[in-house]
C-alpha cells in the first residue's frame, strides 16, 4: 500500500496523554509545519509546566526542549531567541501556564513583540493537577475548585488571550484553532504555519491558542467532550485569526491595488 502521509521525522515514540486529549494532534501539526518549513534541526521549544510536560517526559521526539519554571516560558524563550536569532523558538504551554500564572510573562513578551511563537492549549481547566478552575473555565463550569459551577462575578470571566494580545499590542499573528474534525485540523495547521512564518520572516510575536478537550477532567468520553466543545466552548472562544493572517493579507492587497 502506498504511504500518503507520514509523521514528522523527529517524532519517534507515541505520546502518553489521556485518550482523546488534543495535545497529541496539536503537537504533531506543529512538527509537521516545522518540518515543511525546513526547521526540524533548527528549533528550540520552551516548555511550560502542566500536561504538556508529558511531551518531554515521554521522550516522544529528539527536539531541543527547555523545561521552564511554571509560567515563565515566554521569558525563557526570549532569552533563547535573543541568543540564537537564527533558530525557530517556540513555547508550548497550557492555559494555566500561559494565561494564569504566566500571564505577566506572556503579555510582556507580546508587548515587546519578541520574535517568538507561543502555542498554548486551552482545555478550560488545570489538567495535570486534576481539573481545577482556570481563567479560561466557562461560566457555570464545574471543576475541582468550582464545585457548584464557576461563579464569574466572584472569580472573573473567561480570558481570551489571542484577542487581548491582538487588541492591545502589535503582534505579527494571533489566532485560535481547534482539532476536533478534519476541517478544523486543516485550519489549525494553516494557523500554526502562519504563526511560524511570522517568526521566520522577522515580523514578530505570534500566538496560537488551541481550544482543546480534556475528557478525563471534564468527566466525559472523548466524543461527549467534542460535543461539549462544539455546543458550549465555541460560543465563548470563537475560532479564527485576530491579527495577521488572511484578513490582514487581503487588506494589504486591497491597499496595494488602490495605489
Amino acid at each position: 500500500m502506498k504511504v500518503i502521509r507520514e509523521k514528522p521525522a523527529v517524532i519517534q515514540r507515541p505520546h502518553n496523554f489521556c485518550a482523546g486529549c488534543s495535545h497529541g494532534v496539536f503537537y504533531r501539526l506543529i512538527q509537521e509545519c516545522v518540518e515543511e518549513l525546513g526547521y526540524s534541526k533548527r528549533q528550540i521549544i520552551a516548555m511550560g509546566v502542566g500536561c504538556n510536560c508529558n511531551l518531554t517526559l515521554s521522550k516522544i521526539d529528539t527536539v531541543d526542549k527547555f523545561q521552564c519554571a511554571h509560567g515563565r516560558a515566554a521569558a525563557s524563550a526570549t532569552g533563547i531567541k535573543r541568543m540564537r536569532p537564527d533558530l525557530l523558538v517556540m513555547t508550548y504551554q497550557g492555559d494555566g501556564d500561559c494565561g494564569v500564572i504566566g500571564l505577566g510573562e506572556t503579555l510582556n513578551a507580546a508587548y515587546r513583540n519578541e520574535k517568538i511563537t507561543v502555542f498554548t492549549v486551552n482545555n478550560l481547566n488545570f489538567g495535570m493537577t486534576g481539573g481545577q478552575m482556570s481563567w479560561t473555565t466557562l461560566e457555570g463550569q464545574k471543576t475541582a475548585t468550582s464545585v457548584r459551577g464557576r461563579d464569574c462575578a466572584a472569580t472573573g470571566y473567561p480570558i481570551h488571550l489571542p484577542e487581548i494580545i491582538a487588541g492591545q499590542f502589535r503582534p505579527a499573528y494571533a489566532a485560535r484553532c481547534a482539532v476536533y474534525d478534519p476541517k478544523t485540523v486543516a485550519q489549525a495547521k494553516k494557523y500554526i504555519r502562519r504563526a511560524l512564518e511570522a517568526q521566520i520572516n522577522g515580523e514578530g510575536y505570534a500566538i496560537v491558542e488551541l481550544l482543546g478537550i480534556c475528557p478525563t477532567n471534564w468527566g466525559m468520553s472523548p466524543v461527549q467532550a467534542i460535543e461539549h466543545l462544539q455546543k458550549k466552548a465555541l460560543q465563548e472562544y470563537p475560532l479564527g485569526e485576530f491579527a495577521g493572517g488572511e484578513q490582514a493579507e487581503l487588506a494589504f492587497l486591497r491597499q496595494e491595488a488602490e495605489k
Binding site: C68, A75, S76, G79, R82, Y111
Partner: peptide
C-alpha cells in the same frame, strides 16, 4: 530591560541553556 526580576532570571536561564 525585562518587566521584572522573575522574567530577567528566566531570560538568563534561556540564554545560559544555549
Amino acid at each position: 530591560q525585562a518587566e521584572n526580576e522573575i522574567a530577567s532570571i528566566n531570560m538568563v536561564l534561556g540564554a545560559a541553556a544555549c
